[in-house]
Simulated scan of single mutants.
Amino acid sequence: MNSTLPPFLQATSGALGSAVGNAIVYPLDLATTRMQNNARKPHHERLNLRDTLTHLLSQNHYLSNIYSGISADTLSTLLSNFIYFYSYTSLQKGLHVWHTRHPSLPSTAQHGSVSSSPAGIGGMASKASEILPRPAKPSALEELLIGVISGLISKGITLPISTVCVRQQIENDSEDEKKDLSLVETLSTIYNETGIEGLFSGLKPTIPLTLLPSLTLYIHSVLVRLLLPARHRTHPPASLTFLLGALSNALATIPLYPLVLIKVLSQSGRDKGKNKHKLGMLETLIKIIKRGGIRTLYTGLEGQLVKGVVQQGVMMLVKQRVEQGVIRAYRARSHAATA
């Protein structure tokens, strides 16, 4: 019997996969954030990824240093991905119901269109878009819009926690200003400094960045169709699932990376009180380019790519395995009930 997994299970598997990947690569995430924050400095004063990690490991209490802010980051990752996958799957099911109730309308999906439902990361047979009737299959544009809406919901809700994580990651950049504030204390500090607006720092670049998850998933589906034989698309090997997930994340990240940099600089709080007039995204981009050239927009890109490659690959792998386990348990229970 073919049926989609409930949104709650899909959201849970996605969130757990993201949290596992996040924990594995967190030192890279910390190093990347500090590299991004140093985009304000001249090129000769910036450290590359290897030197940044070496500097972190050379400090006293390096284990606590390289995991500074991990509590806030893990909470942000869990909530953000759970809300994203839950919203995505719920909206997709709602679209399926709408198409089912309007069968006379032209099909929104053409034969051979590529779907990027997060329910089917790794090309599982239970993928929502694959088991829907062909006329109700979402088009690429519908999938993209669903992804953007889901991203806006998830990132909008969790942005204050993301801001806390960035602030905690950079506050301990110097041995002389260690503060080790808790999540609640950091939230309170940011609120006292800049009010509710400070908690939602980086909101403007976050809006276009909501394209990143759905773009990653869409590229992943394209790669699966282009690179894998039809017989392997349903249950691809774990190594291919990891590699395709990693590659899709890299291809989606590169064109959007300058927005990632702007978001981190906005959330860092290092410019608070310096300018009464806050710069817009375009003005910030121009200012960064004038200061250090185009390449400054890609400060920390190597760390972001390595982090994204591992995190996305692990997330897709864990999510696929969780969903397969749920499907096996459901089928075993169904067989036992009918025996």
Rank of each mutant, 00 (worst) to 15 (best):
S129L: 03
L144N: 07
I149A: 15
A140L: 09
P135G: 03
G112K: 05
P138M: 04
L132Q: 05
A136Q: 14
L145C: 13
P133S: 12
K127Y: 10
I153C: 05
T163Y: 00
T163P: 05
T158A: 09
V114L: 12
A140G: 04
T108E: 13
S154Y: 03
A119T: 15
L144K: 08
I146S: 03
M124I: 14
A140Q: 11
S117P: 06
I153H: 06
L159Q: 07
T108F: 03
V148S: 04
L141F: 09
K155L: 11
E142L: 11
P135V: 09
I161V: 14
K155Y: 07
E130V: 12
H111F: 06
S126V: 09
P138T: 10
G122P: 01
I161L: 15
R134G: 02
K127H: 14
P106M: 07
S162L: 10
K127C: 15
S150E: 02
S129F: 01
S162V: 08
T163I: 01
A128P: 00
G156H: 06
A119F: 05
G120V: 01
T158K: 03
M124L: 14
L144P: 04
I149P: 04
G147M: 01
K155P: 00
M124K: 08
E142K: 08
G120E: 04
I131S: 02
H111R: 12
K127V: 06
G147Y: 00
S150Q: 06
L141H: 08
S117D: 11
A109H: 09
R134F: 07
G120F: 00
S139M: 09
G122R: 00
L132R: 04
I153E: 01
I149G: 04
S115H: 13
I121F: 01
S115E: 12
I153M: 10
A136M: 09
R134H: 10
K137P: 04
S139A: 12
I146M: 12
L159H: 02
L132A: 13
P133W: 02
A125G: 13
S126A: 12
G156D: 06
S126I: 11
P138W: 00
S139H: 07
